[in-house]
Each structure stands twice: as C-alpha cells, then as structure tokens.
C-alpha cells in the first residue's frame, strides 16, 4: 500500500568524510502518522530529518516524499508545499523583524514583486498574526528576531512553519530550549495540527516522556541505524536503557 505513504526511505545512506552518519536504512511513514525520532546525540537524527526535507540528499538509496524522489523536486515551491522543517535556532534571519521571518513561510506562494512589496507593507499579515498568536508571541511581531531568546526564536520558526502549511512537518528538536510547560504546549500544537488536518509529523526529541505521551510511533536511532521502531505504548524502560547505553565510539576507528 505505497499509495498512503508520506515518506518512503529505500536503503538511503549518508557519509560525512569517513563518518557514516546514516547507514543504509529503509523505512515507511504513512500519511497522517505522528512519529517521534529519538536516540543519543550523534545518532543521525538531524541528518535524517535534513534528508527528508531535501536539504541534504542521500549518497546512495532514495528518499521519496509522496511517491517522488526528493532529488527530483526541481521546483523549490513544490517541495515547500510537501515538506517543511523547523530546526534549532540560527535558522532564522536575525536582522529581520519577526514578521518577515514568519512571512517567509509564504515565499513559496509569492512572486518576486509581492515579496519585495511585503518588505515595506507586510502582506497577508493576518496569517502571520494568527500563527504568532498560536505560539504566544503576538506582542513581538515587529521585534528584531536576533534580539529574541533561543526559545522565542524556536517559536518564531514554528509560526513560520504554520504559515508555510506543508503536508509533512519535520521538526528537529523543536523544544530543546524551552521550559517543560512551554515544550508541552508546542508539542501539543504540532501534534494537534497534524491530527486535525491529517498531516504527517516527524519530530526528533530528547524528552522520552513527550515522545511516549504524544506520539503514536517512536523510531529510535543509534549510530546511524534504526535501533527500534515501535508503537509508543509498547516501549519498555529496558529498551531505552539499551538505547542510551554508552559504548566505545566505533565511528572514530577510521
């Protein structure tokens, strides 16, 4: 039943120099699935998400977004409709006011002249306002983005994603610099958005509680490989102990 796959990974692998960031792996994620990606740091979570967003391409194997190989999305606008990603801070244009960073989510819909015009008179301000309200930042709309705290910047990035409104939402540790209450809020926004509009969500998290509480499926990565891939309610403490157990770092061998 590939017809309902949002994401199909076929033997995709990625190396950085001598380091195998992602070993050949295969994986399917259906439309509307809400998936958490966990694993120790350096496991390859960011690399995998970047490949799903077509920011990076796999060295070998293929990644299909809605049946189409990521490298074949010639038009960035089509890709932006399919998949959107939020990553950690440093991902926004710091010198611009918050509103322009949020409206960047509309660039796929806008032509050059409209985007130029929007610099002076922000276009579709309502959409930006709504998204900022949803992440609790409506009072910072004209602030210089670089002046915001790390957590606030993560929320601006989320507002931009809401405005972009892609079919597949990718999130790389979207709550890493937020306090627990705010983190729960943001995850709930992401999950409810995915569920109410039948979007696919793949988020990497370092909080296992959040992963188990809000996500249906949990994929654990370790050393660039899938360590386990389960329904979240079947994961035991033992699985997690094994996942995070320290071993000598094999990667440094080469």
């Amino acid at each position: 039943m590939t017809a309902s796959d949002a994401i199909t990974i076929e033997q995709a692998a990625k190396r950085y120099g001598g380091l195998q960031a992602i070993a050949p792996m295969s994986l399917r994620i259906k439309k509307g699935e809400v998936v958490a990606l966990i694993g120790p740091s350096g496991a390859g979570k960011s690399t995998l998400l970047n490949m799903l967003a077509a920011i990076e391409l796999p060295d070998t194997g293929t990644i299909l977004l809605d049946e189409k190989t990521t490298s074949l999305y010639r038009n960035p606008k089509d890709l932006a409709k399919k998949a959107g990603i939020i990553r950690q801070q440093f991902d926004l244009v710091g010198p611009l006011p918050v509103i322009h960073n949020v409206l960047a989510g509309k660039l796929a819909d806008w032509g050059f002249w409209k985007s130029l015009w929007s610099f002076i008179f922000p276009q579709e301000k309502q959409a930006a306002m709504k998204a900022l309200e949803r992440v609790g930042l409506s009072d910072k709309i004209y602030d210089r983005t670089a002046r915001l705290s790390g957590g606030e910047q993560q929320r601006v990035a989320l507002a931009r994603l809401l405005v972009q409104n892609p079919e597949v939402i990718l999130a790389d540790e979207p709550v890493s610099s937020l306090d627990p209450a705010r983190a729960k809020d943001i995850i709930q926004i992401l999950v409810s958005l995915a569920k109410s509009e039948n979007k696919t969500l793949v988020a990497s998290l370092h909080s296992l509680d959040l992963a188990k509480m809000h996500f249906d499926r949990v994929i654990a990565l370790r050393d660039g490989q899938i360590f386990f891939d389960r329904k979240s309610d079947t994961i035991t403490t033992e699985d997690l102990t094994q996942l995070y157990q320290l071993t000598e770092q094999k990667q440094n061998a080469t």
Partner: peptide, 20 residues
C-alpha cells in the same frame, strides 16, 4: 543555515537575496 531554511520555504534565488 538560515538560507537553507529559506530554500526549504520555497524561496527562489531572488527571494533568497531579498530575505536572506
């Protein structure tokens, strides 16, 4: 990195020049 995100937002090269 911010430029990568703009690209992921579907920004064309000229839009990237403007917004990034």
């Amino acid at each position: 990195k911010p430029l990568q995100s703009l690209r992921a937002n579907g920004a064309t090269r000229l839009q990237q020049l403007l917004y990034g």
